[in-house]
């Protein structure tokens, strides 16, 4: 059975008609398929390859750019921090100076006011003393005049003289 099959398979031998058909068909197939399928497919693949390569390049560039920008930003930030610190320090110093000045001014002012007050008090005292002195003078004059007025009344004068005389007389004894 198998022998027979092999004999049948082989008995056809090489058929030149088939060979010519096969060759022509394959060449036509190769031409058509290359034109309609392989070429477009290969083109797309190549295009993608180039696209990917350029994208990678671009990504690398972007990465470097980003790194550069980051460094710049960091530097900037550092500078800004330093500036800010400087400003704060300056402000602190100014504030301290101002404080000291203010305190000094206040102290001076206080001293001045105290001095003024002292002077005023002194003046007032002097004035008061003066006023008192004048008043004492006038009072004593008033008292004296009152006393004198009293002497001028006759009975009193007499009594005073008498008293006085009595006193003198007692002393002499």
């Amino acid at each position: 059975m198998l022998d027979q099959a092999l004999i049948i398979g082989a008995s056809n031998g090489l058929l030149f008609g088939d060979m010519i058909i096969q060759l022509l068909t394959f060449i036509i197939l190769l031409a058509l398929i290359t034109k309609f399928a392989w070429k477009p497919l290969m083109n797309v693949m190549q295009e993608r390859e180039q696209h990917i390569a350029s994208e990678i390049d671009q990504a690398e560039q972007s990465n470097q750019e980003a790194k550069r920008l980051m460094n710049e930003a960091n530097d900037e930030l550092k500078n800004t921090r330093q500036n800010a610190q400087q400003i704060i320090d300056d402000a602190n110093e100014t504030a301290k100076n101002q404080q000291a000045e203010l305190i000094k001014a206040a102290k001076e002012e206080a001293a001045r006011i105290k001095e003024n007050a002292r002077l005023e008090i002194e003046q007032e005292r002097d004035k008061a003393i003066q006023a008192l002195q004048t008043q004492v003078g006038s009072l004593s004059v008033q008292i004296a005049s009152k006393v004198i007025e009293k002497e001028l009344s006759e009975t009193e004068q007499e009594k005073l003289i008498n008293d006085y005389l009595d006193k003198v007389g007692e002393d002499n004894e």
């Binding site: 394959f26 197939l29 398929i33 309609f36 399928a37 477009p40 797309v44």
Partner: peptide
């Protein structure tokens, strides 16, 4: 040949990146 051609042409239709 026809099957190969059809498969190849269908496979490379609407090619995209």
């Amino acid at each position: 040949s026809a099957i190969v051609f059809i498969i190849a042409v269908i496979g490379s239709r609407k090619l995209q990146r």
